[in-house]
Amino acid sequence: MAKRKRRSKNRHTGRTWVISILAVIVIFLGVYVGHHFYRIWNQQRIEQEAREKDRRAKQLFIQQVAPEAQAMQNTYHVYASITIAQAILESQWGTSQLASQYHNLFGIKGTGANSQVMTTKEYVNGKWIVTKGRFRVYDSWSDSIKDHTRLMLNGTDTNQQNYDRVVHATNYQEAARGLQEAGYATDPDYAQKLISVIKAYKLYNYDK
Rank of each mutant, 00 (worst) to 15 (best):
E68R: 07
R177W: 12
N125W: 04
K9Y: 14
A175N: 07
E68Y: 02
D164F: 10
A99K: 04
F106L: 06
V31R: 03
R136A: 01
I82N: 01
N171P: 04
G133H: 03
T75C: 08
K127A: 06
D189Y: 14
Q64T: 01
N171A: 14
S20P: 03
I129P: 01
R150P: 00
K208T: 09
Q64A: 00
A50W: 02
A175D: 04
G14W: 08
R177F: 15
D207I: 06
V137M: 02
I108H: 12
G110L: 09
E49H: 04
R136F: 01
I198E: 02
K58V: 06
I145T: 00
V31D: 04
Q43G: 01
L89I: 13
Q97S: 15
V124I: 10
N171R: 11
I82G: 00
D143H: 03
S142T: 07
A182M: 13
R150E: 06
W17F: 12
Q48E: 07
Q192M: 14
E181A: 14
I46H: 05
K193V: 11
Y163L: 08
T170Q: 13
Y32L: 11
A69I: 01
S142F: 04
S100K: 13
G110W: 13
R45P: 00
E122Q: 09
L179F: 09
T120S: 03
M152L: 07
L29M: 10
Y204F: 09
I88E: 00
S96V: 08
V137Q: 05
I25S: 11
T16M: 15
A80W: 03
E181V: 13
H12S: 15
T83L: 11
Q180Y: 13
L151N: 02
M152K: 00
E174A: 12
E68L: 05
G183Q: 14
L179W: 04
K146V: 08
N104H: 11
R150Q: 11
L203D: 00
T111E: 15
S144P: 01
I19K: 12
R4M: 15
N42S: 09
K9F: 14
L151Y: 03
A99L: 07
